[in-house]
Design a protein around this nucleic acid. Sequence first.
DNA 1: GTTGGCACTCAAACGGTCGGATTGCCAAAC
DNA 2: GTTTGGCAATCCGACCGTTTGAGTGCCAAC
Lengths: 343, 343
Amino acid sequence: MAFENLSQRELKILQNLIMHYVQTADPVGSRVIANKFRMGLSPATIRNTMQDLEEMGLIRQPHTSAGRIPTDIGYRVFVDMLLRPEPLSEAEKAKIKGTIGSAKKGLDSILGQTSKVLGEITSQLGISVGPRFDEGILTKIDLIPVAEGKILVIVAVKSGLARTILLEVESNIEIEELRQIEQILNERLIGLTLGHIRKTLKERLSDTNGSPRLIKLFIDSKSPVWSDQGEEKLHFVGTDKLITQPEFADRDKLTEFVKLLEEQKALIDYIEAKAVGEGIVITIGSENEINQIQGCSLVISRYNAGKLSGTIGIIGPTRMPYSKLVSIVEYTAKSLTDALSDL
Amino acid sequence: MAFENLSQRELKILQNLIMHYVQTADPVGSRVIANKFRMGLSPATIRNTMQDLEEMGLIRQPHTSAGRIPTDIGYRVFVDMLLRPEPLSEAEKAKIKGTIGSAKKGLDSILGQTSKVLGEITSQLGISVGPRFDEGILTKIDLIPVAEGKILVIVAVKSGLARTILLEVESNIEIEELRQIEQILNERLIGLTLGHIRKTLKERLSDTNGSPRLIKLFIDSKSPVWSDQGEEKLHFVGTDKLITQPEFADRDKLTEFVKLLEEQKALIDYIEAKAVGEGIVITIGSENEINQIQGCSLVISRYNAGKLSGTIGIIGPTRMPYSKLVSIVEYTAKSLTDALSDL
DNA sequence: GTTGGCACTCAAACGGTCGGATTGCCAAAC
DNA sequence: GTTTGGCAATCCGACCGTTTGAGTGCCAAC
């Protein structure tokens, strides 16, 4: 839309209005802007401009004789044209690095700490999603018998991440057989990505003809060993912060939202789909296709773990301090990438 | 306290009052009891008895000229003296078995499904806590190099459960050295419980004198390999159900409660400490030492996984259908124990 | 011991009023 | 043409008194 040719004044008023509204959550009147921001204009003038902004759909009145609040489109213009990322203090940087560093080794723990620090420092809901292993290059696969009829499969990928899958088999496992399978798998598959393996599995292992019986378990593209589904976990911290927000005063909305969080899958898929490319992605209110978060904004970013990548960010009401949050999420993603490549 | 010599009538009225209150959440008046439960008594008589019950502290009026509601002590008497577990329908049984059975193998997934079915079928918050490995008898320990400077330790205990720990080491790992350590650990420690190992570690391995250098990593009773801390995860499903309850109308209470859930540790420790011995344990409202759940009741039970055991159950407002919940939790614990011993 | 009757109490719902904030518009000033 | 002050109009939210209905406590009668 043609918001490029908004006048300086219109932009400035939109900006001030949003800044004030983010702090107070109350509709902002013309006089407040005139007084608080000392624009050298009378309330009446500001009123006129506000009318224009309203016609353009950037702000609206909750009801006659109330002040204005930004619409989702208004926030969008603000984010696209007016956003100045607010630098972090040294203390904030230290806290982010520190919290991530204090995690026990292991992806889960690190992601847990990451969402925790995001939640705490932003006072929003901090989230993190583990990477999909699909792009990971296999470096090693181990088969360990752990008990009667159970073997543990360890799939290690470049950059030091690994995942383990518990597999059930007919109870009589010959250790020799396992070694054989291990060897075959390692010889033929190392260096390929899991996604690639999954697609070309049959050809690559067809000539084994099931000679070690158990290898059948692996020549199945749906086998959990190669699966790219359902392994990611959503970590989130700060639900309490969201509950407090006036935006969630509506009980039903809150309930729906909490359900979404618990079910995880839909939200994970959505976030993964939105966070593409480098840098921060912001989606605002009704821009979100998921019903339950249409009153919310997302500020998300990808992080890297070697060839793999996942998503972190925050969820909060559309009325959020974008300038600050952008910086925090950006810095956290960077820190997380560092922490994961350190390993 | 001397509640044994409550008259039949008093007990019956207490019972009816609680039954009605659990359904409606409204204070119960004398006429309601007289009409709905056809006791052959006039409201006036019931009023007299209710006064007695109030003096004993079993019920109370939220305010003058309102009906009565049970106190925590009233619920306690009900649970101890009047509770008749309500048998489950075949459909309910099938759902419980089915949901648990549909889990992927692996403890986490099974416990996840268990809390899910508990949450759904009870409309309360279903919870499950993984077993502490401390009592588990070591059957095997494996050391797998997964990447530069990282080894995966697999600790398998009797009954087919295993846990994996990622360990960091100086980057140059000799595969031979790992094998040596593996052998030493296996020779000396198999057959002992992890808890026992942790306590006698130094003696049992002292004579190695650090000959394979890396073994030092294991001769540390605080090593995460033997730790009994922080491994348990709290699974919970049904937060949305609790939010809906009028008991959580108070925003602050809800916030505090959600925080407790997210932090996990305090709640895990409390639940683990309360659920002792065989069978169901019920704690009611102010009986709970944790502030955040003083308006809630717990219905919990241990389940077994071989020598190990953990806890499952539900959390809900004190106003809950105890008769039904007791049966559900009991049956679920049994089903879970079955599922875990099947493996 | 039980019951009906009755005065009393209190919460919640209802409805009307008032004050405050803010707007839209218009005519005058710049 | 833009800006401004003035003013009527609008609407929300708080406040307050009233009513309604449910339920109790107590007493006298059965």
